[in-house]
């Protein structure tokens, strides 16, 4: 499999804190790749560097063979990386449909085309029936799926999901897991997700990267990673294995 995203030795420092420390990894095309680790490990900082919110202090990010570090978020999105936020940020006063149309308009000039595409995406994410509601009136699980829908409507090659399962009940988690797996299988969409919900990580990810203090402490197949001693000590705890 060819490499879609290649991160090489990137670092980010916030004053005294080294949030991400010379981190390197590769995500193959078509993979579902999970980044886990304790709070403050640098996961969201890593996402923000890939998505263009932060410029890395050093290192390179290569996406589809082109360097993207330091590009602005809109340019990164146009290159084919969609993202969601840990704390959801849909456009509150717009309807669900209009939220997704905004994303769909990125690569479509006509609103009519964009609406058709948006409705397809909404169907896929089980939000079609709620398309006329205002985003602000949605429940948290629905808003999380709306964020995924908006990102998906921009036709990304790579989707960055920042804790889309957090705060969801297990049945809702399973629903999103099923949707993401289907997307990955049917469209070949590559997904990188930050997640604390191990139930979802184990069900989805083909590869897991574990971060602690901005450094990788383990990477590999899910089963191998969750049995890794360093991972258990710093993050999962012994009871995760039971």
């Amino acid at each position: 499999m060819s490499t879609l995203l290649k991160v090489e030795g990137i670092s980010k420092r916030f004053r005294g804190l080294l949030a991400v420390d010379r981190l390197s990894f590769e995500v193959p095309k078509g993979a579902i790749f999970a980044v886990i680790g304790p709070n403050g490990a640098g996961k969201t900082t890593l996402f923000n560097m890939i998505a263009g919110v932060y410029t890395p202090d050093g290192g390179t990010i290569t996406f589809r063979g082109e360097r993207i570090e330091g590009l602005t978020p809109d340019k990164v999105c146009r290159r084919g990386i969609g993202r969601t936020y840990q704390i959801v940020r849909p456009f509150p006063a717009l309807s669900v449909e209009d939220n997704v149309i905004v994303g769909a308009l990125l690569h479509r000039n006509g609103v009519v085309d964009a609406r058709a595409h948006a409705l397809d995406v909404l169907r896929r994410l089980d939000l079609y029936d709620k398309r006329a509601q205002l985003a602000s009136s949605l429940t948290l699980p629905d808003r999380k799926r709306l964020e995924v829908a908006r990102a998906l409507a921009t036709d990304p090659k790579l989707l960055l999901l920042d804790e889309v399962m957090a705060g969801l009940r297990p049945t809702e988690t399973d629903r999103i897991v099923a949707i993401l797996r289907e997307l990955n299988r049917e469209t070949g969409l590559t997904i990188v997700l930050i997640e604390h919900v191990m139930r979802a990580v184990m069900a989805l990810a083909g590869q897991i990267l574990v971060l602690n203090h901005g450094k990788p402490i383990a990477q590999g197949e899910p089963q191998a990673v969750v049995h890794d001693k360093a991972v258990i000590d710093s993050y999962l705890g012994a009871e995760a294995l039971s």
Partner: peptide, 26 residues
């Protein structure tokens, strides 16, 4: 308002950072 520009404007009005990450040159 009904055009592409109108959608992008309202996205910017609602949440500029989210609009940028949706690919809009704000």
């Amino acid at each position: 308002l009904q055009s592409r520009i109108g959608y992008f404007w309202r996205a910017i009005r609602e949440d500029e950072e989210a609009a940028r990450s949706t690919g809009i040159d704000t």
